[in-house]
Design a protein around this nucleic acid. Structure first.
Lengths: 247, 247
DNA sequence: CCTTTATCTTTACATCGTAAAGATAAGCTA
DNA sequence: TAGCTTATCTTTACGATGTAAAGATAAAGG
């Protein structure tokens, strides 16, 4: 896409040098026999054995290294050391691969959110910890967050993505419910509940997007030297209690 | 890109039928003489006369019709009835075209925001009108809003885009300052001021993105039949005054 | 009037997604 | 165990894209 990578000047041939995973890589070091060809060394076997997982690992590598624009089917195949058409068999098309990777991202994200709170926290600590963990995940995995929330090529009808994204939403809704000391129904919401959920999600998501896009630079520059985005976020959250509306 | 439009099955030839603007189109109906060629009718002249403006008009048409993925240099050139390489001369590359179009979007947006308030409004009315106008613009021009806030291919070093985007930010900051009844300095901000600005922007931007992405469907479905996104937004804003933090 | 310059078209190339056909190996069945 | 079936991966091919480079055309200006 967009030929940003024209500097590569590699005319899509002479590859086939599947980089053996160095040590204890995810695909469990498949101990497959080398093809009985002329080459004596450990030539990559015709069948990979765990290509699907290897492609997802490769995709995350490419995404965080080259950004959203660099995440192409062919780049992922190159990274995994297989032909450019190999991913098709496992994911159908680019939307399929991207959607499965986004599902992994949501699961990572959900785990990070769950790990951000523990039972010993005060309500205030808890109310600060979740948004901070949210932004921290996005800053640590900007490519993933962009994949999850910026791309238009996601297929939410895929069960894995649907479930992971819905779990993320439920986690947020339940956290808001706990803060309000009232259970959140899976069926109906009051306008106040819905407003509280939408407000929390909109604020932290919007803040994250603006931050990743560098749009908050204008604000951070006008704050005392060294003020971080995290401190600004904390200020936003803390001052919400006393924020007058409208004036 | 992505060959979503493969159904077109038009092998990029046999075009050259510049669609004369029907009546009072933007480029002011350039009254140029037809090329002295064999064809008797009004053949398109070699030099367009106002191609730059025509390309921007065509780009907005393509964007709102085919979405972000359909906004390609070649599609815009087709829409304008010129060769696929013609835009290069006026915009350099796709980033240039897209950035100039985004600047137009910001100016449209700024005008809509300015028109949303008048002197007769109460502070409360004003505080509700601006966010509503913000979301209304995005809903009326989803392609434009996506171009302004979703694309990674924007070049903010371009003066037109830089100025338009900064004007947008200034408008928001000043509105917050007016609500707080304190002037907003162009140089330094207190943490409270910065927090108020970032909170307002994050909330409305995040809400808009989630709404355009269909991510708020889960919430709206759980509300009483017929509740609109606008009502949810209003609920978010109104309940902010009484929102307890953390719980 | 002729040269210069700006504008637009043609041609070309590397990249992309994806479809289709061929190659290879694993699995199953008889 | 031999052969057929199926899953997996590679090759080849095509239309799409962005962009560079060279040619064509017309406006501008001496």
């Amino acid at each position: 896409m967009t030929s940003y990578n024209n500097f590569m000047a590699k005319t899509e041939t002479a590859r086939r040098s599947r980089p053996r995973k160095t040590s204890s890589s995810t695909p469990a070091a498949r101990p497959r026999p080398a093809r009985a060809a002329g080459r004596a060394k450990a030539e990559a076997p015709y069948h990979h054995g765990a290509l699907r997982e290897a492609l997802l690992v490769a995709a995350e590598t490419v995404l965080e290294r080259d950004g959203l624009a660099g995440l192409t089917l062919r780049a992922v195949a190159r990274e995994a050391g297989v032909s450019h058409a190999a991913p098709t068999h496992h994911f159908g098309d680019l939307t399929g691969l991207v959607s499965e990777l986004a599902a992994i991202g949501f699961r990572q994200f959900n785990a990070a959110m769950a790990a951000s709170c523990n039972a010993a926290m005060t309500p205030l600590e808890r109310a600060l910890a979740r948004p901070k963990a949210y932004v921290a995940y996005a800053q640590a995995h900007p490519g993933m967050y962009g994949l999850m929330f910026r791309t238009e090529r996601l297929d939410y009808s895929r069960p894995s993505l649907h479930e992971a994204a819905e779990a993320s939403f439920s986690g947020l809704a339940n956290a808001i419910g706990a803060m309000r000391r009232e259970p959140i129904s899976g069926k109906a919401l009051t306008l106040e509940q819905a407003a509280a959920i939408a407000r929390a999600w909109s604020m932290v998501h919007g803040f994250t997007m603006l931050l990743l896009d560098g749009r908050l630079g204008d604000i951070l520059e006008r704050l005392p030297e060294g003020t971080t985005a995290e401190q600004l976020l904390e200020g936003m959250l803390k001052s919400m209690a006393t924020a007058k509306f409208p004036g």
